[in-house]
Simulated assay, not measured.
Amino acid sequence: MSRKRCTIVNFLSYRERCLGALVGVLGLLSLHCSSSPSGNDQPQEPGPPDSPENPDPSTGDPTRLIGAFQVRSLPAAASEEGGAEAAGTSSLLGKIYDGPTPSQIVWEEKTVEGGCRLLTPRVPFCNEPCGGSAVCVEDDTCQPYPTAHSAGPVTATGLNIESGEASFVMNPVANNYQPPAGAKLLYPPADEGQTVRFEASGDYFSAFAVEAKGVRPLELQGGAVLLDPNQAVTLEWTPPGQAGISTIEVTLDISHHGGTKGKIECAVEDTGSLELPASLVTQLLDLGVAGFPSILVTRKAVGSTTIAQGRVDLVISSQVERPVEIAGLTSCHDDSECPDGQTCQRDLTCQ
């Protein structure tokens, strides 16, 4: 089965991927897994300024996620042709908004088991179009998109920089924060357990500081993940060198190229292994599949601070994505990749 990714998606999967990228910037995982027993850890609107839930608006609402700095690394991976491993890569991106970012897809929890949950998508409908400045977040309910603003120059310390310097300053460019020229991040971007600190001098948003710990690069064992009905899936990885710093989040999506029908998300302790329950795997397969299914495993450490407008996160993560193999499924980009007598469908499967 080809492991190449494809950018051809239908309306729902395209919207989901685009929103996923924006949400990723805000620290909600591609693909986000709840670390709370209820799974209800999505940012929520605060109460009115004089409400009991928010008696002092100057302190901000910690449940209202408005932005994040993402320090993300992708471990080295062998080439598809079996050649030498490519080098691991690191990236940094930050952005802060004046409110939470709405989503056009509502993910509804269907089943919860063993730190994992099965989610299915629902797209709300608004009789009155929301226009380009807002999104339909519930039936006949529009929510405006937030606007990004500056927090002034941000000083980053504790990261591994090619120049050997201890820190660098990021100035906002179109209200985006990235390392300046000459401040290339090494791989890994931070040593395990190393304190990483971002300190904003203040501008539209007030001055703040946020810290998180560096994580060990994720080493996921095995190759492609096999899915069979009524069979649990066991994931194994090298445990962290220091306990209590990181957690593991998993997203299993086997239908995103055909208009996603559901996904499994897990949020668990970083112990070195995880079993995806057979019941959830079976239910996900029953929802349907599309070409090039994949599983994303993320080791992450998160630090947070709260300003008047809400919460800002610093997320340090290491991600590994693996292809998923399903009996009877042949993925394709065109007819030449299909068995005789079959053609490549819009969902990138041979039929």
Rank of each mutant, 00 (worst) to 15 (best):
V315K: 11
P129K: 03
K95D: 02
T7Q: 12
E249C: 10
F292Y: 13
A308G: 06
N175E: 10
I316S: 05
P180C: 14
C18G: 05
D228G: 09
G115W: 01
S38R: 06
E16T: 10
P52F: 10
A209R: 07
L28H: 10
R3K: 14
I326W: 02
L276C: 13
C266P: 00
Y145I: 09
L92G: 05
A224C: 09
L74A: 08
R15H: 06
R299N: 01
D191A: 15
G310N: 05
Q143Y: 12
L280K: 06
L185E: 01
Q221G: 06
L314M: 09
M1P: 06
C350Q: 13
S318C: 01
Q221T: 13
Q194M: 02
D228H: 12
E162N: 02
S13R: 01
V315Q: 06
T282S: 15
C6D: 13
T298C: 02
A84C: 07
D286T: 06
S246D: 05
G182L: 06
C344K: 06
L296W: 13
L28C: 11
Q194W: 00
T282H: 09
A78M: 10
R117P: 04
V289H: 07
S133I: 15
Y14I: 00
I161N: 03
P239I: 02
G152W: 08
P179W: 01
I105A: 02
E219D: 09
M1F: 09
S38E: 09
T271A: 10
Q44I: 13
R5I: 08
V312E: 06
I316P: 10
V173F: 13
L28D: 14
T155R: 14
G259V: 02
V233R: 02
D98N: 15
S206H: 09
S30F: 04
C266F: 03
S58A: 15
G83H: 08
A76T: 02
A181L: 14
I245A: 11
C266M: 03
L92N: 07
E192F: 11
C266Q: 01
N175Y: 12
D228Q: 14
L93K: 11
T251S: 13
S91V: 12
H32W: 00
A308T: 14
G131I: 04
T155Q: 12
D50G: 10
E113Q: 15
T157E: 14
T330M: 04
E275D: 10
D50A: 14
G82C: 04
C344Q: 00
P52L: 08
E269H: 12
P172I: 00
P129M: 03
F168S: 00
G244H: 10
G328Q: 04
R299A: 00
P189L: 01
A86E: 12
D61G: 03
L296V: 14
T155C: 01
I254K: 07
T343D: 07
N175K: 09
G310R: 05
V23R: 07
P339W: 10
T282V: 13
C266E: 03
A183E: 03
R17S: 05
F205I: 14
G288W: 02
A148T: 11
Q231R: 14
L220H: 00
S91F: 04
C136R: 07
C350N: 08
E138Y: 10
L65K: 11
P124V: 08
